[in-house]
Design a protein around this nucleic acid. Structure first.
Lengths: 235, 235
DNA sequence: GCAAAAGTGTTGCTATTACACCCATGC
DNA sequence: GCATGGGTGTAATAGCAACACTTTTGC
């Protein structure tokens, strides 16, 4: 027995929405598409799934190609499969989103792809259905961040509470009372206070914190409401 | 300009996890696979994406083939793409989950596929990676139901509060105080009390309710916690 | 008349919000 | 010495959980 005869095969691609936080606003990394069609237009970083790799592996490969990074937060978002989304040939695309520490991003890789960071509020027109992918990723990151501590993935190992607060305010486009915010954050037990201070943002300096990885992994799936005894949830 | 030459095409399939609620427990609908490989073994309902249809359309088509139903709740879950998940030929599969009113399911379609409902706790061994798909769907339905009122999709148009509570208890595998539950549910404004009673479950009878569709659509994206002013969320 | 399920209110507690002042330092 | 951002506590409120008895009716 060999093949499923009479079935049509199609191209399968991966596209990555790469988030970064520069201390001010949330941004995504876009490239200028290097081949036809739509050559030169702004696009997500993507590529075709190869015969020897899983889709997850393809996503990791593509992320590394552009950023030089491995082992960062990468999650499958949604698969886009309208028949005519690529005018050349039918191609389904599995979108992934990544959260990276923007400082670890190696700018030199830029040149090959003409990559640039764009604030979420100033995304240019994108090729194909990439605009929909970005919209989906924005929704998903908010959704997930409202329930799970994923935003730490956007920060360096050492960060301050004001930095963290700015990040949350940026993602949710809101303002938060700093007393309540720090109480809440510290109450999670996710943070370890360091003795060192960050003097960049202010004269007095703000204490650095780092993640308590033990608690981070343990509590990653926590939170939630609505159901009385959430101990039974185990998402 | 014609094709992306030198790229490998592959098969794209859709598999559906179909949930139903019989008043007692949450169940999924499985079929006996009708062709090789793994012919005769328990499987999710699935099929290949055709050249003329989008992936969503393929999922709806496959769901209708097995259940006779259209226009029901159907959501993309995840795409599975390990290189060797199908031993015959590389096939990626987009998993969808559906929530249907089990009473609308047309049993006569059964015969062709030898379909059967299985309680979530008694799922037989499944072909390929379908076990993983079911696990993912279980997690997703809980996750989503904890935040959004999707479980109504599993009930008939008219239902009672005790029925609804049993459903929640079944999905979350927990018990809920009925006074608190009815308070909470009624406070959402999602329900309209009917004058008619369901006398099946008890001698006294329980009032039927139906969804206030206006509020249902409006509040579908509501709920949530953790972020102070959730009005800015707009998931 | 009794068994079985439906329906309903109150109270205590916990979590969340709102809010204002002092501190440390570089210039 | 003053401007800038960092750090901290308390009181009022709202939301949530715990809890028990009465009602209806088929048998």
């Amino acid at each position: 027995m060999h093949k499923y005869s009479k079935q049509t095969r199609l191209l399968l691609a991966v596209d990555c929405i790469i988030f970064g936080f520069d201390g001010e606003t949330l941004k995504i990394l876009l490239i200028q598409r290097g081949f036809q069609p739509e050559k030169g237009n702004w696009s997500l970083m993507g590529g075709f799934v190869q015969p020897t790799e899983s889709i997850d592996q393809a996503a990791n490969r593509i992320l590394k190609q552009l950023t030089g990074l491995e082992g960062v937060y990468l999650e499958q978002l949604h698969t886009f499969g309208d028949t005519n989304r690529d005018p050349i040939e039918r191609t389904a695309s599995v979108a992934y989103f990544a959260l990276i520490d923007i400082h670890k991003y190696e700018t030199q890789l830029n040149t090959e792809y003409h990559a640039e960071w764009f604030p979420l509020k100033r995304i240019p027109k994108l090729v194909f259905d990439h605009q929909d992918m970005v919209e989906g990723a924005k929704r998903r990151i908010r959704y997930k961040a409202a329930l799970h501590p994923i935003l730490f993935e956007l920060l360096p190992t050492k960060f301050t509470i004001p930095q963290l607060q700015t990040l949350y305010e940026s993602v949710f486009n809101t303002t938060i009372d700093k007393r309540n915010f720090s109480k809440r954050v510290l109450a999670t037990g996710l943070l370890i206070k360091l003795s060192e201070k960050d003097k960049a943002g202010s004269k007095r300096g703000a204490y650095y914190y780092q993640l308590n990885m033990q608690n981070y992994y343990a509590k990653f799936q926590a939170f939630l409401n609505f159901i009385p005894n959430p101990d039974t949830l185990h998402l």
